[in-house]
Nucleic acid binder design. Sequence first.
DNA 1: GATGAATGAGAATTCATTCAT
DNA 2: GATGAATGAATTCTCATTCAT
Lengths: 193, 193, 193, 193
Amino acid sequence: MKTEQILNAAAELFSRKGYHNTKMKDIADMAEVGKGTLYEYYRSKDELFKELVKVGARRYQQLTEQQLNKEGITLWDKLQAILEHQVDYVWDNKSFAFLLLGRESYIITESELYQFLYQTGEEIFKAMETVFQEAVDSRKIAPGNATVYAKIFYGIATEVVSSMVLWGNNKPSREEIKEIIYTLRFGLERKEL
Amino acid sequence: MKTEQILNAAAELFSRKGYHNTKMKDIADMAEVGKGTLYEYYRSKDELFKELVKVGARRYQQLTEQQLNKEGITLWDKLQAILEHQVDYVWDNKSFAFLLLGRESYIITESELYQFLYQTGEEIFKAMETVFQEAVDSRKIAPGNATVYAKIFYGIATEVVSSMVLWGNNKPSREEIKEIIYTLRFGLERKEL
Amino acid sequence: MKTEQILNAAAELFSRKGYHNTKMKDIADMAEVGKGTLYEYYRSKDELFKELVKVGARRYQQLTEQQLNKEGITLWDKLQAILEHQVDYVWDNKSFAFLLLGRESYIITESELYQFLYQTGEEIFKAMETVFQEAVDSRKIAPGNATVYAKIFYGIATEVVSSMVLWGNNKPSREEIKEIIYTLRFGLERKEL
Amino acid sequence: MKTEQILNAAAELFSRKGYHNTKMKDIADMAEVGKGTLYEYYRSKDELFKELVKVGARRYQQLTEQQLNKEGITLWDKLQAILEHQVDYVWDNKSFAFLLLGRESYIITESELYQFLYQTGEEIFKAMETVFQEAVDSRKIAPGNATVYAKIFYGIATEVVSSMVLWGNNKPSREEIKEIIYTLRFGLERKEL
DNA sequence: GATGAATGAGAATTCATTCAT
DNA sequence: GATGAATGAATTCTCATTCAT
């Protein structure tokens, strides 16, 4: 209950103003608890922040891997689903998501967090790579470097959510996502639409 | 001279440790000037930081638009050139680049900077959009939404440089970039290599 | 019952860690009661501490004056008895004793306590002075300043117990105490042993 | 200069109000410097306090051992000189002296300081013991336990200075000190004055 | 009566900025 | 111009005390 209020307030403020510009007093006020109460639940500002990032990262990762592991659906539907779910998740958890996109320099300094986020990103990337590798191996897509394919897709996915979170862009429509996948599938120089 | 030393030290430190973890004393020490001297050249820490970001953003923008405006070269060579130049620029100016990728939450808070970076990004994006629109209009590439095309390319470009700066990835080889463009051109489902 | 537990825990902790380093939570934990319960019995941390010191000081004073008022025993046996009893008392009540030796700076600040301990000490001292004065008057010991005699004895007595409490020295043996009295009686330059 | 002001203010306040009741703001105000200035000279409140105690203890020890090592002077003059010098030193440095008498519970908690003061006391005690042992060996005083003799003298010396510092007693006169030594020399039961 | 979750006043410490030299 | 000692506003965190259960 109280934990919930605190985490939500903290996520909101940290993502909007960054680690150093968010004061414990602000969090307490927004969570409608006393300053001291924060320390009943989290040993320090650091710990609160780390908790937040870790919880968020884990959820995000689960979500993505869930989509990647779906069986019996074409690669294109899978990619479509990943983008859609990421967009939905990020849209609904803007403040959490912000923390995960590495926009907070505090993360860089705290090697524990840095490692954590690095690994999370790496794992997601590896999972994507595997999917592409399998598609190459089973000749579902053109032969080529699965890592490059993964990097392209990862880049697009990141850009799509970043632009929402960072620059306040609109949530891309299902249609738009479909176009992205379509383009990725047949290339810019495709002849037929 | 002094300005040079100060800006370089500041860029290095801000990008490595973030705005709030970089102390004026640190900058003075690394620039090998007195703490007071910083204030001879910049009214405040804020101003120094802003200066840095603006200088960097302007250079980056120029570089990109230069590539986009080149005449008499195919779209593919143009895109290839953009990626290559961005990679080179970022590689050589890691510390500046970092500041531009919006990894510093301080930027979010300072609406002047936020506006500035938003517009810079927007301008680059618009320029790209125009290029793609022209290519669509002149039937050099498949008909479709030029905005989507631009977003894809922008996402890939950002990811490529981000991963270098943020996660310390290697500089992608010319070969790798070629592959990216190639994939983008013919799509993942292309039949012939 | 509860009062007992609380006072014992408090004495133990205050004497070991001092007023400010002892937290109400610590006392509650050691006394195996809830934090709120402390406030059922004592209005505040201050009051608890004062109570403790007062109880201890009164006991100590009683003990000493009892010995001083014993009739029909030689001065030397009386002094011997005082030292022995003080040593025993302090040994058995190390934590209480500590508080009485004025080792806690909090006492200095709280003028009520300061006054109290000052008076207690003064009373003990006066009682000793009287004993020595009577001994001088009745020519049992050499003529001289009874105040000086009292100060010497008081100093020795204090040092003996302080060293136990403060520096963890061993409890001095009955033999050792006898030697002290003996030396005080015949002086360092005595001829015969 | 500034260091001087700070140390004096700190000694005064720590000794009057104890470690925890002395606030850095108080010290800064009394020293007539800014709060931040304290931290230019001492890393923390702890360090400032420790510095103070160590400086004081070293001075006190030197003074005492100087007296103990004087050659060509009778034992009695030596003891007289020790007491006189201690009284003078403490009178002139009441605030420093207070810290050394172990009246501050903070010291107990900080094992580094505790060790330090314990050793300083021990060294002084050992030096006294040696003096008495030599006097016994050379038959200048009665055969007996030099440790007991030292303990008696140490106790008296401590009491004399403690009473000045702790209870605000007057500075004992030269005459009074002489009486103390005299009593110690010939004992309470001496026949001739 | 007993409890401990919640609270906020109060303290140590940091660091951008100033200004006398 | 250059410097760095001095400053105090601002921030994190602690813990005695309260009060609803």
